[in-house]
């Protein structure tokens, strides 16, 4: 499955060139959030690699992953297109609220 990834906010700097903060990935069909994190860690390293160290079944708190606008919560959640087609998905990656 084709995945279009857009990095925003604090994770945008993972790609040294901000202009390349949007890129494509391939994920096996039926892949889940954990697989997606692995793919992102392979390409971008931290903070995705750090996220994989967690023993929690939930996604780490320092990352927010939206698949076609829907937020992922657990690592075993499937990455599927919102409209059910196999045309691929758009994944937006963000850092959450900080400070205050």
């Amino acid at each position: 499955m084709r995945v279009r990834v857009k990095l925003h906010g604090g994770v945008r700097s993972c790609e040294m060139d901000p202009a390349r903060s949007s890129f494509g990935l391939t994920l096996r069909n039926g892949g889940n959030a954990g697989d997606l994190l692995h793919a992102l860690a392979e390409r971008c390293g931290d903070p995705f690699r750090r996220a994989l160290d967690s023993t929690d079944e939930r996604l780490p708190r320092h990352l927010r992953l939206f698949v076609d606008g829907e937020m992922l919560v657990t690592l075993d959640q499937p990455v599927v297109p919102a409209n059910g087609s196999d045309a691929g998905v758009t994944v937006v990656v963000l850092t959450p609220m900080m400070g205050g």
Partner: peptide, 18 residues
């Protein structure tokens, strides 16, 4: 704190009477 700043990409926020 919840939308603009994380979307912009800065963690550098604080509450002045914090």
């Amino acid at each position: 704190l919840g939308t603009f700043l994380p979307a912009f990409g800065t963690p550098n926020s604080f509450v002045s009477d914090g």
